[in-house]
């Protein structure tokens, strides 16, 4: 945000100095305040349209649901009903009667586990499939079939195998998010330019050095595309899986709220789920941006 503002400032300042080199004593403009004003304007341009839309939608929702006998609560009701949950997310009354923070953190922990496992295994398998023609011929058809299985269809099987909710949920996340990671990594590896392979051959990098110094950086943009799709899918899967396995977690919180007819709580939970999904996506995207800053430009 800061960069473009100062850059523009420089450019506008330059021609003035070049055109009138005689006037050496031109008073300095207050660049600080101007830069801040510009920043504020840019932020406003970005923030105002979505805020207006949100305000309008809330208003419509309020108008539709305010009538007596409406099935869903209007936003004002939602806020009133869930005020305690919003203001105190950290309470813990034992069992599953906990604040939203604990539910969300339990869900995020499962995602962190399952997703880390699938990132490691997915990149490893992707490298294998991208590197070896025989591995691709053998494994690719299998991947193509397995990846179409809906996440929840794996849950009964994993419950049967692990006999416990926690590892089953983690497994569902793992199996849901691994496919795009494998497939994108494999494409990235297959697309490494022959030039880079030649360079590695002339320099005589050993396989391990080739992996870390050429393969991973060259395929990084593809790998991060896969990782970004993967995190989105795993967040989708965890909410559904938790509804079925129960215990602490945002998925079961929603299901529990439905069973007790606390519709307002469902709406609040959905809001949190959406925001966190968005943040996770942005997190991986910006991580990818940092890691691939050199590669992506070419």
């Amino acid at each position: 945000m800061n960069m473009p503002a100062t850059k523009i400032d420089l450019e506008t300042a330059m021609p003035a100095a070049a055109a009138a080199p005689v006037v050496a004593m031109t008073p300095k403009r207050p660049p600080r305040t101007e830069a801040y004003a510009r920043m504020a304007r840019e932020t406003a341009v970005r923030m105002i349209p979505p805020l207006v839309v949100i305000a309008l939608l809330t208003l419509v929702w309020e108008l539709i649901c305010r009538r007596a006998g409406s099935a869903l609560p209007p936003p004002s009701r939602v806020f009133k009903d869930t005020k305690e949950l919003i203001l105190d997310p950290f309470f813990d009354h034992g069992g599953i009667d906990k604040g939203l923070f604990w539910h969300l953190s339990a869900s995020l922990q499962r995602v962190a586990f399952g997703y880390s496992l699938s990132a490691i295994a997915g990149i490893a398998l992707g490298v294998l499939v991208g590197q070896s023609v025989w591995a691709m011929r053998g494994l690719d058809p299998l991947f193509q079939v397995l990846r179409t299985i809906p996440p929840l269809a794996w849950l009964p099987l994993s419950l049967a195998a692990f006999r416990d909710g926690q590892p089953s949920a983690i497994f569902v996340i793992f199996i849901t998010s691994i496919w795009p990671i494998i497939i994108n990594t494999a494409v990235g590896i297959r697309n490494i330019p022959q030039d880079y392979r030649n360079v590695a051959a002339v320099v005589q990098l050993n396989p391990l050095e080739f992996f870390s110094k050429i393969m991973i950086p060259a395929a990084a943009p593809y790998i991060f595309t896969g990782l970004r799709i993967g995190i989105g899918l795993s967040w989708l899967a965890i909410v559904a899986a938790e509804m079925l396995i129960g215990g602490v977690g945002i998925g079961f919180f929603i299901w529990d709220a439905w069973n007790s007819s606390h519709i307002s709580e469902i709406i609040l939970a959905l809001f949190y789920v959406g925001i966190i999904g968005f943040v996770l996506d942005r997190l991986i995207a910006s991580l990818g941006k940092v890691v691939t800053r050199g590669t992506a430009q070419n």
């Binding site: 030039d195 030649n198 002339v202 110094k213 060259a218 800053r293």
Partner: peptide
């Protein structure tokens, strides 16, 4: 087999884009 005793300057430079100028030379 390829080796540094017969170093190649490639037609399209083939520098590794994620490394700096210094690191590209340093690699070899």
């Amino acid at each position: 087999s390829p080796g540094p005793d017969r170093a190649v300057v490639f037609q399209n430079h083939s520098l590794l884009p994620w490394l700096t100028v210094y690191e590209n030379v340093r690699l070899g």
